[in-house]
């Protein structure tokens, strides 16, 4: 050692002891006042970051799930709406059919009633006419061919006449 340029007489034990002591003291002080707290903060940050990443991943997963659910829901509601519209249309069609049917039936019925009434009226008219024609023709005949006909001939004539009217 002495050859190497440090120079000196005797054993440099003091330097050795001092250097060793100072270095260990320095290391101890640094650990206690500087590096210890710093390492604590670094570790804390590491944990914090890891935590945040985990949290973010979880949130991302949740959001994904929610979106999937939403999409599913949307699809479902769209299908439901489609079904509702379809049903309504079918119902409307049915109702339309029913209304038409009812209207047709009503019309048929009215027609029937009218026909019957007409027939009845015709019958009545016929009866009234028959009576009136009879008396009228008697009146006319008696006026036109007074005395030329007997009562019997007259009746026969009238009946023939009426027959003719009925046939017509």
């Amino acid at each position: 050692m002495f050859v190497l340029g440090a120079g000196g007489h005797g054993f440099n034990g003091g330097d050795i002891a001092f250097q060793l002591l100072m270095f260990l003291l320095l290391m101890f002080l640094l650990r206690k006042y500087a590096f210890g707290p710093l390492m604590g903060v670094m570790k804390q940050r590491e944990e914090h970051i890891a935590n945040e990443i985990e949290q973010a991943e979880k949130h991302h997963q949740e959001a994904k799930k929610l979106a999937e659910e939403q999409r599913e829901l949307m699809k479902k509601s769209r299908q439901e709406a489609q079904a509702l519209i379809e049903e309504a249309r079918k119902l409307g069609e049915e109702q339309k059919e029913q209304i038409i049917q009812a209207a047709r039936a009503e019309a048929e019925r009215l027609k029937e009633v009218a026909k019957q009434e007409i027939a009845q009226e015709k019958e009545q008219a016929m009866a009234a006419l028959r009576q009136q024609v009879a008396s009228l023709s008697v009146l006319i005949a008696s006026k036109v061919i007074e005395k030329e006909l007997s009562e019997q001939d007259q009746a026969k004539l009238i009946s023939e006449y009426i027959q003719e009217v009925g046939e017509r």
Binding site: G8, N12, G14, D15
Partner: peptide, 13 residues
């Protein structure tokens, strides 16, 4: 009985 190089002592400090 130990030799101290005071320059070293100072610079180490």
């Amino acid at each position: 009985g130990l030799t101290f190089n005071l320059s070293n002592v100072m610079m180490i400090t």
